[in-house]
Lab assay of single mutants.
Amino acid sequence: DTINITLPDGKTLTLTVTPEFTVKELAEEIARRLGLSPEDIKDTHNGKTLDPSLTLAEYGITPGSTITLEIK
């Protein structure tokens, strides 16, 4: 299953994830792909900052969802 990550420059990154991924694991994968530190990444969905300890499923993030990435 894939989700879309909207980057600060407007580009989109597509990642393969499972509903059990935590937001922290997602940030780590994004950081790895972009050459950043996971601590520099802030993920938001529907205007809410995502708690790193919760899973994508707990936020109702499903395949095809879009998450907005902010760099701290």
Rank of each mutant, 00 (worst) to 15 (best):
I5S: 05
G60K: 02
V23W: 15
F21L: 12
L54N: 05
R32S: 09
L69C: 11
S65W: 05
A27Y: 15
L34Q: 02
L13A: 04
P63S: 10
T12Q: 09
E25C: 06
S53E: 09
G10L: 04
I61E: 01
A31R: 06
D43M: 15
K24R: 14
T49I: 12
T14E: 10
L56V: 02
K24P: 00
P38S: 09
N46Q: 11
P38E: 08
T62K: 05
E20R: 07
I3F: 03
G64M: 02
L7T: 08
I3V: 08
E29S: 06
E29Q: 07
L7P: 01
G47Q: 06
F21G: 04
D1P: 10
F21H: 06
G60F: 03
E58F: 06
L36S: 07
D9T: 09
S65T: 13
D1W: 15
T2A: 08
S37M: 10
T22W: 01
I5L: 04
L50G: 04
K24F: 07
G35L: 04
G10P: 01
T16L: 11
A27F: 15
V17W: 15
K72W: 13
L13Q: 03
G64P: 01
P63C: 06
P8T: 10
V17R: 00
E70N: 07
I30F: 03
D1S: 13
L34V: 07
L7F: 13
I61N: 01
D43W: 15
K24Y: 08
L26P: 00
G10F: 03
D43A: 15
G10W: 02
T6G: 07
T49S: 11
L7H: 02
I3M: 02
L54W: 10
L56G: 00
F21E: 07
E29H: 09
G64E: 03
T14F: 08
E58Q: 06
T68C: 15
I71S: 05
D40L: 13
G47I: 10
V23Y: 06
P19M: 08
I3N: 04
T2S: 09
Y59Q: 15
P63V: 07
E28T: 08
P63D: 12
G10N: 05
P38L: 13
A27H: 15
K48Y: 04
L56W: 01
D1A: 15
A57Y: 13
